[in-house]
Simulated scan of single mutants.
Amino acid sequence: MARTPKAQALGAALRQAREDKELLLRELAAMIKRDIGVVSRWETGDRTPKPEQVAQILTKLEVDGERYDEIMTLAYGTNESQWVAITLPEQRQQMAALVDWEQRATRIVEVAPLVVPGLLQTSGYIRGIMTAAGVPEGEIALRVTSRLGRADAITKRKPAELLVLVGQAALNQDVGGRATMVEQLDHLLDMAARPNIELRIVPDHRGWHPGLEGSFILIDASRPASGRRAAAKSASIVFVGTRRSELMLHEEQDVAAYRRALDRVLAVSLAPEPSANLISQVRRRMEKK
């Protein structure tokens, strides 16, 4: 069975395309002359359709243009142990997969040495990043709304547990200006008070630790097993972003390596209360400037 993150993303995209046409699973299966069980397993990611089968489904569903191209990028290399997204279409699909993992998560851990983690960013902070990065003004509002929507994973009625380890340097960055940073620090304190959120600061001058290698997100999520009566199973994934590509890791040994890295970062981090005190100190100092 496939069940790789990319296979699941492909299945989710095919399911969404079918539902957009308001077709039942059996209706699509009849249209492409395939067993309904096979099509069902394609949509769950338990099995992977061949690229020509994906193209057939999209053609029957009258999917074309940019959306056709984006879904087709998922049809290749689906069973590979690592999902590296280099092209913009595949990065969009991978981000959609990350959001899906966050929404199904039972626990999310993010190590962020230089920037406030995405799930805890304010709209002003997000806008400050995107403006400095040269994102066209017409795209910023949509991107801000999209990123803020991700926070539903930790604020909904049954939220995921969130552990964030933020580098002290992230608190001192002047992202979006002083007023924006004060607002962002206030937001961190408010979110840290939630029972499902644990925020720890990694102070400067703690020597080398894996967090200095860069940010990463580790997600533990529940997913339905195949079959209507099967019990829910758990799965884990690591998301690592770089300047030019995104990487998703799901193999057990890869996830285990990042869990060990997390333990090392935890060992040099402050406990939640001293972390909140440090944030408050930085906030007061910044407000007086």
Score class of each variant (00 low, 15 high):
144 V>F: 04
95 M>L: 14
266 L>G: 03
119 L>D: 09
228 R>D: 12
99 V>E: 08
188 L>Y: 01
66 E>L: 12
205 H>I: 01
98 L>E: 09
288 K>V: 09
186 D>L: 02
205 H>T: 06
119 L>N: 10
42 W>I: 09
184 Q>L: 01
142 L>C: 07
272 P>K: 03
229 R>W: 13
206 R>P: 02
136 P>F: 04
68 Y>N: 10
157 R>F: 04
99 V>S: 08
244 R>F: 08
170 A>M: 02
157 R>N: 11
23 L>S: 05
165 L>H: 09
172 N>G: 09
233 K>F: 01
160 A>Y: 02
283 R>C: 05
1 M>F: 03
196 N>D: 10
88 L>S: 12
240 V>D: 07
85 A>H: 08
24 L>Q: 15
141 A>P: 06
60 K>C: 06
54 V>R: 08
23 L>Y: 07
288 K>M: 09
25 L>V: 05
236 S>Q: 15
23 L>W: 14
159 P>W: 10
21 K>F: 00
51 P>V: 11
196 N>Y: 05
18 R>E: 04
51 P>K: 12
65 G>E: 12
278 L>I: 05
229 R>K: 14
137 E>G: 12
146 S>D: 13
226 S>P: 00
6 K>H: 09
99 V>R: 04
230 A>R: 14
29 A>P: 02
46 D>T: 10
252 E>Y: 07
146 S>T: 12
242 T>A: 14
203 P>T: 11
242 T>W: 04
236 S>E: 14
118 G>Q: 07
68 Y>D: 07
210 P>E: 08
258 Y>T: 04
195 P>Y: 11
68 Y>F: 15
89 P>C: 02
120 L>H: 04
172 N>R: 13
10 L>D: 11
95 M>C: 00
13 A>H: 03
227 G>W: 11
9 A>E: 14
231 A>Q: 15
192 A>P: 05
240 V>Y: 07
212 L>C: 03
221 A>D: 05
169 A>D: 09
